[in-house]
Amino acid sequence: MDSVLIIGGTRFIGRPTVEEFLDHGYDVTIFNRGSHENPFAENDDVRHVEGDRTTDSALERAKMEVDPDVVVDCVAYYPKDVRAATQIFADCDAYVYISSGAAYGVDEAPKREDDTPLHDCTPDQATSDEDETYGPRKAEGDRAVFAAADRGVRAMSIRPPIVFGPHDYTRRFDYWIDRVKNHDRLLVPYSELRHLVYVEDVASALRVIAEAGEAGEAYNVGTHTLPLLTEWIDAIAEAVGRDVETVRVGDRELDAVDLAPDEFPLYLDYPHVLPTDKLEALGWEPTAVAESVAETVAAHPDGEGRENGPDRETEERMLGVLDTF
């Protein structure tokens, strides 16, 4: 039986990743600081090693204790984290780094793994915790993976866009679930195409890449289809069992109530499209949108997410303005 060490493992992407590897017969160990509730605390099949992944000695201790065949790195937010992990786990059968679709450095569509340039990353960006440096940091992590592969390490990366599903602590998708559950008319900004990905599809992709991926390669992951924002809302409404009206608005209309399109979760002003044919060639398949949305809706805690976008009072003022025309 193969063994996997999941760095992270207790939060959003980590939970289904643990379950994915368990379901496929792996011995699973999670490695983290223990600062978040461990959903596997009562599961004897999941071992927990406590430590800070930013400390090399803690990673080295985890390696000695577990001796994993596979390492999945869910919480490498800085390039130095990836460089350290690919050195410490250099003799493992596979190291898979969770990068991001934000690593791509241009707004063209589609964004292909082997053709689309990545962000540059300055030394200051590499150590910054600002939101605007997230893409450059992930891109530099990818380059650390490629450098490790050049040294003979079987290191690979996965590039998800925005992830949705149960236990999503960002609550971006939950904003729209809450709106659909509670209101008949929704204000929706005109938005470009934006790839999303179901969290369990990220988990299954991580296992597939670990088993069948090629060293030094990056793999996009995303939905099979590319719904518009209004179509995502329609899918939520179908799962909830409600009829809702989506009222689409642009910048000029929103200006009337001092709103901007980017205040709405999942809005995007340029197309973000990640083809997944390279990953699918390894045998990976995504979950149908209707099924993944239904599972996300079923897990949604009532009231969660509504704070992540415009308040309902402002939304109703905008709808009132539109009704006067």
Rank of each mutant, 00 (worst) to 15 (best):
I7C: 01
G8V: 03
R11L: 11
F12Q: 02
P16M: 09
E19K: 13
F21L: 07
D23G: 13
H24N: 14
H24A: 09
T29W: 04
T29M: 03
I30L: 08
F31I: 08
N32T: 07
S35I: 15
H36C: 05
E42F: 02
D44H: 01
T54N: 09
R61A: 09
V66C: 09
V70H: 08
V75R: 12
A76V: 01
Y78L: 12
A84Y: 01
A85G: 09
Q87F: 04
I88Y: 00
D91S: 05
D91I: 08
D93N: 13
G101T: 04
D107Y: 07
A109E: 07
E113S: 09
D114P: 03
H119L: 06
C121H: 00
A126H: 05
T127H: 03
T127D: 13
E140M: 09
A144F: 10
G152A: 08
V153G: 05
V163M: 03
V163H: 10
D174V: 05
L186I: 14
L187Y: 04
V188A: 10
E192N: 11
H195E: 06
V199M: 12
A205R: 09
V208K: 09
A210V: 06
A212E: 14
A215L: 01
G222Y: 02
T223E: 14
H224K: 10
H224R: 12
H224W: 04
L226F: 01
P227N: 08
L228V: 05
D234V: 05
A237H: 11
E238M: 06
G241P: 10
R248E: 15
R248C: 13
D251C: 04
R252Q: 15
R252N: 05
L254A: 12
V257T: 08
L259A: 14
D262E: 12
F264S: 09
D269E: 13
L274Q: 01
L274R: 00
A281Q: 01
L282H: 02
E285P: 01
P286K: 07
A288D: 15
S292R: 06
A294H: 14
A299G: 10
A299L: 07
A299D: 15
G309L: 03
D311C: 05
R312A: 06
R312S: 07
E313A: 15
L319R: 12
V321Y: 12
D323K: 15
T324P: 01
